[in-house]
Design a binder for these strands. Structure first.
Lengths: 120, 120
DNA sequence: TTAATCATTCACCCTGACGTTAACGAGTCT
DNA sequence: AGACTCGTTAACGTCAGGGTGAATGATTAA
């Protein structure tokens, strides 16, 4: 865990409910920082830190409002989402690749029948 | 956020580098718990807790080895990955949807305040 | 039965993440 | 200039998450 990968940082950023909510909200339109803080009933400093995390992973970008330079407008950036989807599809190939899935399964069970699952 | 959504729990589970590494490793084939602990140079209790988290989010499933009932074999489950991909594609529709993309671009180039003030 | 093995849960510590208030820099307005 | 606003960073407290070692339960081997 010396240097967390970009994917790790993306996932960590999206794991927080507040930050995921911010992403969902930015899907509609860009928002000023203050508006986001108010929308999530949170102090401006707290939201500022969340936005910094999202910014550092490249999930959002910051712009200065054209009409009022005090206002920072945040909007989504596509790259990290695309990277995450790339990894996801790689993982999901585990199932779409029938041969590989069967081989892996057979290797472990060696002809015995996999019956009833167990729950936690 | 008293009750984190399934998506939040999935993302939280995948945010940890160890757990994401476990997922990556399980892509090759199912693994016994002890093998995973050794592979990540980690005590069995630590790995056991990671596996519990993954299990509780449905990302992996536990089975008793057919040859030795002491061994718990872990393998991937598809559902949470599909759900995550669903959300991801929803977010990415922000860009693939031409109208939405245009709207977002227009907002960004004009500023977000509809209060009459024009940029230049 | 007794000893050894696999994996879990239990008890504890400790770092890191998130939230708050206060102070600061930057920009707007009169 | 001075007062006000937006958003940030700074300092601090709190709490969950993740690590360890010891104890427990289940299974296998002698």
């Amino acid at each position: 865990m010396a240097t967390p990968s970009a994917l790790d940082r993306t996932l960590a950023a999206l794991a927080d409910p507040t930050r995921r909510g911010v992403v969902d909200r930015l899907r509609q339109r860009p928002h000023p920082a203050g508006e986001l803080a108010a929308a999530f009933d949170m102090s401006p400093p707290a939201m500022s830190r969340h936005l910094r995390v999202l910014r550092q992973t490249g999930l959002v970008e910051e712009r200065i409002d054209a009409d009022d330079a005090r206002v920072r407008v945040y909007s989504l950036r596509p790259e990290p989402f695309a990277a995450l989807r790339g990894w996801l599809e790689e993982v999901e190939s585990f199932w779409s690749d029938q041969l590989g899935a069967f081989k892996a399964h057979a290797e472990r069970t060696r002809g015995t029948k996999p019956s009833g699952g167990r729950k936690s």
